[in-house]
Simulated scan of single mutants.
Amino acid sequence: MPNAMLFSGFRLRDLQLKNRIVASPMWQYAANKGYPTDWHLMHLGRFADGGCGLVFQEGTSVERRGCGTTGDLGLWDDCFVEPLARIVALIKANGAAAGIQLLHCGRKARTRAPTQGRGYLARTPDIEDWDEWEPISASAVALKEGMPAPRAMTPGDIRAVVDAYAAAASRARRAGYDVIELHAAHGYLLHQFLSPATNRRGDAYGGSLANRMRLVIEIVDAVRANWDDAKPLFVRVSCVDGAGWSVDDTVVLSRQLSLHGVDVIDCSSGGLVGSPLPSHAAPDYGYQVQYAEHVKAHTGMPTAAVGLIVHARQAEAILAAGQADLILLGRELIHNPNWAIDTALKLGVDGAAANWPPHIRYWLERRASATPGFMPSTFAP
Rank of each mutant, 00 (worst) to 15 (best):
residue 247 V to Y: 04
residue 247 V to T: 11
residue 247 V to C: 07
residue 248 D to C: 07
residue 248 D to A: 13
residue 248 D to V: 08
residue 249 D to M: 04
residue 249 D to C: 03
residue 249 D to L: 11
residue 250 T to P: 06
residue 250 T to R: 13
residue 250 T to H: 04
residue 251 V to K: 01
residue 252 V to P: 00
residue 252 V to C: 09
residue 252 V to Q: 14
residue 253 L to I: 10
residue 253 L to E: 12
residue 253 L to Q: 13
residue 253 L to V: 11
residue 253 L to Y: 12
residue 253 L to H: 09
residue 254 S to L: 11
residue 254 S to R: 02
residue 254 S to W: 09
residue 255 R to S: 14
residue 255 R to I: 07
residue 255 R to H: 13
residue 256 Q to R: 15
residue 256 Q to P: 01
residue 257 L to C: 15
residue 257 L to M: 15
residue 258 S to T: 10
residue 258 S to Q: 14
residue 258 S to W: 08
residue 259 L to M: 07
residue 260 H to Y: 00
residue 260 H to E: 01
residue 260 H to V: 01
residue 260 H to D: 00
residue 261 G to A: 08
residue 261 G to M: 07
residue 261 G to L: 13
residue 261 G to V: 06
residue 262 V to G: 10
residue 262 V to N: 07
residue 263 D to C: 05
residue 263 D to Q: 09
residue 265 I to E: 03
residue 266 D to V: 08
residue 266 D to F: 03
residue 266 D to H: 15
residue 266 D to N: 14
residue 267 C to I: 02
residue 267 C to E: 00
residue 267 C to A: 00
residue 267 C to R: 00
residue 268 S to I: 13
residue 268 S to A: 15
residue 268 S to W: 07
residue 268 S to M: 08
residue 269 S to Q: 07
residue 269 S to E: 10
residue 269 S to M: 01
residue 269 S to W: 02
residue 270 G to Q: 06
residue 271 G to T: 13
residue 271 G to C: 12
residue 271 G to L: 10
residue 271 G to D: 09
residue 272 L to R: 07
residue 272 L to D: 02
residue 272 L to I: 13
residue 273 V to K: 14
residue 273 V to Q: 13
residue 273 V to I: 05
residue 273 V to G: 05
residue 274 G to M: 00
residue 274 G to F: 00
residue 274 G to V: 04
residue 275 S to D: 03
residue 275 S to M: 02
residue 275 S to W: 00
residue 276 P to A: 03
residue 276 P to H: 10
residue 277 L to F: 03
residue 277 L to C: 03
residue 277 L to Y: 04
residue 278 P to M: 02
residue 278 P to Y: 02
residue 279 S to I: 12
residue 279 S to Q: 14
residue 280 H to R: 13
residue 280 H to C: 04
residue 280 H to N: 10
residue 281 A to F: 03
residue 282 A to L: 15
residue 283 P to G: 02
residue 283 P to T: 09
residue 284 D to C: 11
residue 284 D to T: 12
residue 285 Y to T: 04
residue 285 Y to W: 10
residue 286 G to W: 10
residue 287 Y to G: 03
residue 287 Y to V: 10
residue 288 Q to T: 07
residue 288 Q to P: 12
residue 288 Q to D: 12
residue 288 Q to I: 08
residue 288 Q to N: 09
residue 288 Q to L: 08
residue 289 V to D: 11
residue 289 V to Y: 14
residue 290 Q to R: 14
residue 291 Y to M: 09
residue 291 Y to Q: 10
residue 291 Y to E: 09
residue 291 Y to I: 12
